[in-house]
Design a binder for these strands. Structure first.
Length: 488
DNA sequence: CCGTCATCAAGGGCTGGGGA
DNA sequence: TCCCCAGCCCTTGATGACGG
């Protein structure tokens, strides 16, 4: 089929078939197909486009249970839910993965009870292992055998059935480009699901020394990578494939910087200097940035090209500095000289959002805008906006005065966004008795006390409507250890 | 007693260069 | 085209210091 024949036919089918299907049929890239579709204002085809089109032939049925539903779905061009439904209709058991390599730590077989199986995947393997009084590897192995997904608290990329179905259909880079994510993330996901490359080659999971398997989830990835001289990404990939949660954080170690050690900053890579000083690369990076020292190898004498100037403001200065191999200050200077507005990280600040900075606590604004408090604080300090101070002159209206003593001081203070002491003093000044209830009521409730240490202080604070500090103080006072996501 | 800020550790994710 | 990997940014959460 010639190009002149191909393209009108392809364009006619836009929106009737998925971008990937058309790309495969006409030998185009999915990104190109999407661009053509979007430029014509055509909506993408529904992810269920082929729901009715599945022809369950004996050959198709024969695949059920011989591999993961996701893999069957990919072969048949449908979703894993449809495959799973068909498999259950025919009473075919789900595909069971082969057993994991048996580390030395698994000493004896365990008879699993139904209620113990029910715990799998509901929390970190380490936590469940502690609850059951067994080794984490017994939990991992059992969960793996039953095909239960590991408990995850964070997964930034939301992998849909549709996305998983297209893994291996096109190259990782093509896939990454289409969905706007990193090829590395695609590769890791593809290997984790046991899907070969689109050329049909297997991507083996990196082999780690036997003893390292026992350290996964026990030591941090960074520590394993450093101790065994292997890339962190390999450790992460194997841990991800096995569904082992991250390890608890190590104890923090403070480093005292002096003129001699500070003089090293920027003379070599942060990692090399970190190794030299026996600290983490992030500590070096943090100190270097604090002193406004450019990374090693970055030059301030930078010759700008048109293509590079075109990127100013479209990406954060830091990202461009890394991309152009120059310091962040060089990018910032050029951008400001051209009057181009900065792009901060993944978030582009609007005028309305900037106007909110400093009008409330960073945490409260972050919650409103759906950002992290750190990002809000960073933006506020960059714009030289003073932090919100809860201590301020408050106008005591009749309505506000009427509430004194009717609700707990701390609750009222929270409502007014002022310090609770201010409310208490005003109430005492007017001789009004305090409300019998106060924030301590939170801790009088045994159900709330039982929550201490079971989740992060911040999470419990949000749940109870108090600050993380309040939770932390109570937790420490009761001698309860801080919650560790991987604590076992 | 509680809120805020600064600092640090760590994980998720990305970029880009080099090699097969 | 894929793989490998160093280096970096962003985010989350814990904690000490300080102040109201």
């Amino acid at each position: 089929m010639s190009k002149t024949q191909t393209e009108p036919e392809l364009l006619r089918l836009l929106g009737e078939h998925s971008d990937f299907a058309l790309a495969a049929r006409f030998g185009k890239s999915p990104v190109w197909v999407r661009e053509q579709r979007e430029s014509r204002g055509i909506e993408p085809v529904s992810r269920d486009f082929n729901r009715q089109a599945i022809d369950w032939t004996p050959q198709a049925d024969a695949l059920l249970g011989t591999m993961q539903d996701t893999s069957v779905a990919r072969r048949l061009g449908t979703s894993k839910n449809i495959v799973g439904y068909r498999r259950q209709q025919l009473g075919i058991a789900a595909y069971q993965r082969p057993p994991l390599p048996q580390p030395r730590l698994i000493s004896n077989a365990k008879q699993w009870q139904a209620q113990e199986d029910a715990l799998l995947g509901t929390d970190h393997d380490r936590v469940i292992a502690a609850k059951l009084g067994i080794n984490i590897w017994q939990v991992v192995n059992r969960r793996w055998q039953l095909g239960i997904e590991a408990y995850m608290t964070c997964d930034r990329i939301v992998w849909t059935d549709e996305m998983e179905g297209y893994l291996g259909v096109v190259s990782d880079s093509e896939f990454a480009s289409y969905y706007g994510i990193s090829p590395l993330s695609v590769r890791m996901k593809r290997i984790a699901l046991g899907i070969p490359t689109f050329t049909g080659e297997d991507s083996p999971v990196p082999q780690l020394p036997a003893e390292v398997y026992e350290l996964l989830g026990v030591w941090t990835d960074v520590r394993i990578a450093a101790e065994y001289g292997m890339p962190r990404v390999n450790v992460r990939l194997v841990r991800m494939v096995l569904g082992i949660e991250v390890a608890p954080k190590s104890d923090r170690s403070l480093f005292s910087w002096d003129k001699t050690t500070e003089a090293l900053l920027g003379t070599d890579s942060d990692a090399n200097i970190a190794a030299q000083l026996g600290v983490t690369a992030q500590q070096v990076s943090h100190r270097r940035k604090k002193l406004s020292i450019a990374p090693s190898g970055y030059s301030d004498r930078f010759r700008w090209k048109k293509a590079q100037i075109a990127q100013l403001g479209r990406f954060s200065d830091a990202v461009l500095a890394q991309r152009f191999r120059c310091s962040k200050a060089v990018v910032e200077k050029k951008r400001k000289a051209l009057g181009i507005r900065a792009k901060n990280g993944a978030h582009r600040w609007t005028k309305a959002e900037i106007a909110q900075l400093g009008t409330d606590t960073d945490a409260a604004i972050a919650a409103t805008l759906g950002l992290s408090p750190s990002l809000v604080r960073k933006q506020r300090t960059e714009l030289d906006i003073a932090p919100f101070r809860p201590v301020r002159t408050i106008k005591w209206s009749k309505n506000r005065l009427a509430k004194l003593g009717k609700i707990p001081d701390s609750d009222f203070a929270y409502e007014l966004k002022i310090n609770p002491g201010t409310v208490t003093r005003k109430r005492q000044e007017l001789g009004i008795a305090r409300c019998a209830e106060d924030h301590r009521q939170h801790w009088k409730d045994p159900r709330n006390r039982e929550l201490l240490g079971t989740m992060s202080d911040g999470a419990l604070a949000r749940k109870l409507g108090v600050t993380p500090s309040a939770v932390r103080l109570k937790r420490v006072a009761m001698g309860i250890a801080a919650f560790e996501p991987s604590n076992g």
